[in-house]
Write a protein that binds this DNA or RNA. Structure first.
Length: 472
RNA sequence: GUGGGUGUAGCUCAGCAGGUAGAGCGCCGCGUUGUGGUCGCGGAUGUCGCGGGUUCAAGUCCCGUCACUCACCCCA
């Protein structure tokens, strides 16, 4: 017999948890729509050339190729004939998407003339990465993206919308206090230019290390940056360290820190732009109603992806910093340069829901409040002879908008109640000979261990009232 | 791609000096007739990952292999 199991790096849930997961998806979708975004879905696989435009070694290492058996045979034949027609010819034609941003770029470029700009879309689908799986990291996972794409231009005002969306959604999700951390790549670039770190590669390398500050600590950073690989002077490293540890403590403090950075600058143009952008973003974030304790400047945030050019975001849970960023994103100047001549700047964020869900579960902060079952009422079979009446009651409840399961196979009532309890169904509507005789239905609340009998005509109304009651 | 760890009942694991397999949880049944969760009693379940070796004897030691897992790179 074949051992049934999922491939490593994937996960599936039992219904009670799937419900919780679905509720989170619903909340995110609702949040995105409330901010005026349109839904989009794209195929799980794309033409390989679309995904591998930036033939970076990393992407190639992580992408899953897709190939039909026919295509595979054809490729084999070609290989057999010694047809070595360059590296690219060896790739299968199709590959699984590893994020939603690249497909978005292709989508926007492809449908440019049918879309209206600024194009505001959200997309919540699974993506695939051929990584070695790790704790809370998967090879298949959900991303929930929102992006605003402009044609030619997109004012920095849109950058302020992202924190507002994050705030609304994570408030709804009710998974605890959170802080939206904001930074700006131009500011970072300017700062490092001022320090004489001009080379793009070196800047990127420094940013990557700085990103580890929270995880590895200050000493690690000091040793690394002054060490062989970087060879930075000690006073430069100290400047980096003190800069990078900046965390604003409120709105006015954030503005003051921006002013301080600007005053200390040796005149970098990029730094000045970054400061101006952040200033505008922060001001509008406040105007959009985000409480000032929920956002702050954090100069250590860089984001690994090199396509970010301006504002960058990272959101953390205040009580669980170990979880890391639960939502991140930023501004990019040219989304679809590979696919169109049009200049399409954008800004967006992404929630890695699979990882978030997993970590919330591990940390024990998944709300227990969500129901374990989608069934609201079970109609047990007290007496097989009353099947018609039982089914009529179930039908009546369903017409009343109540999710109803009717027991078809019967058995002892006790067993049926146990079934309901285990399945996480809270209410039972009992219709036995007694109830049929007097035209009533008995409603039992398994959580509160309480039951009462109502006239048949009032069942739906009574249950609606009960369903609105808290469990304890 | 680089390094560690682990593989025993559905799950979590024990089995510490090699001697014929255990616990807790879960599951099933019973505690009578229309009432679950608690409680009591009873019950089922394992090619001890796979292959080879050492030994009178291997879950236990050795080798190989596969799988899973954690961390690093990178990232959600």
């Amino acid at each position: 017999m074949i051992t049934p199991r999922t491939p490593s790096g994937t996960f599936e849930l039992l219904p009670p948890e799937q419900i919780a997961f679905q509720r989170m998806l619903d909340a995110i979708r609702a949040g995105y729509e409330r901010f005026g975004f349109l839904p989009v879905e794209t195929p799980v696989f794309e033409r390989s050339e679309v995904l591998l435009t930036k033939t970076g070694g990393e992407t190639e290492r992580q992408v899953y190729f897709v190939q039909s058996t026919g295509a595979l045979e054809k490729a084999r034949d070609a290989a057999g004939e010694g047809d070595a027609e360059g590296e690219e010819a060896a790739y299968p034609e199709l590959a699984l998407r590893f994020d939603l941003t690249v497909p978005l770029a292709r989508y926007v470029a492809e449908h440019e003339h049918q879309l209206t700009f600024p194009f505001r879309r959200y997309q919540m689908q699974r993506v695939y990465r051929g990584e070695r799986p790790q704790r809370g990291r998967f090879r298949e996972f959900y991303q929930c993206d929102v992006d605003i794409i402009g044609k030619d231009e997109l004012s920095v005002r849109h950058d302020a919308e992202c924190p507002a969306i994050i705030h609304a959604i994570f408030t709804d999700l009710a998974i605890g206090a959170f802080t939206i951390q904001v930074n700006n790549r131009k500011l970072l670039r300017g700062f490092y230019e001022d320090l004489g770190i001009v080379d793009g590669e070196q800047q990127a390398a420094v940013l990557r290390e700085v990103d580890k500050l929270d995880k590895r600590g200050e000493e690690y950073l000091r040793t690394t940056l002054t060490g062989e690989d970087f060879g930075l002077a000690e006073d430069v490293v100290e400047q980096i360290l003190s800069f990078v540890q900046v965390r604003s403590t409120g709105h006015d403090d954030a503005l003051a820190r921006l002013a301080a950075v600007e005053a200390a600058s040796r005149g970098s143009q990029a730094l000045a732009e970054g400061v101006a952008e952040l200033r505008e973003v922060l001001t509008l974030v406040r105007a959009l109603g985000v409480p000032e304790q929920d956002y702050r400047l954090n100069f250590s945030i860089a984001r690994g992806l090199d396509y970010y050019t301006g504002t960058v975001y990272e959101t953390v849970l205040d009580d669980h910093p170990e979880i890391g960023s639960i939502c991140s994103g930023g501004r990019y100047d040219n989304l679809a340069g590979q696919y169109t001549r049009s200049r399409l700047p954008g800004v967006g964020i992404s929630i890695g829901l699979s990882r978030l869900f997993w970590q919330l579960r591990e940390a024990g902060i998944l709300q227990a409040s969500t129901a374990r079952s989608t069934v609201q009422v079970l109609v047990p079979q007290v007496d097989a002879a009353l099947l018609d009446d039982q089914l009529a009651l179930a039908s009546h409840l369903r017409h009343g908008g109540i999710n109803t399961e009717a027991v078809l196979d019967g058995g002892k009532l006790g067993k049926q109640l146990r079934y309901a309890d285990r399945a996480g169904i809270r209410f039972v509507a009992i219709l036995g000979p007694q109830e049929v005789g007097e035209g009533t239905v008995t409603i039992k609340d398994l959580r509160r261990q309480d039951q009462f009998t109502v006239p048949r005509a009032e069942v739906v109304a009574a249950l609606r009232v009960e369903l609105a009651q808290p469990e304890v």
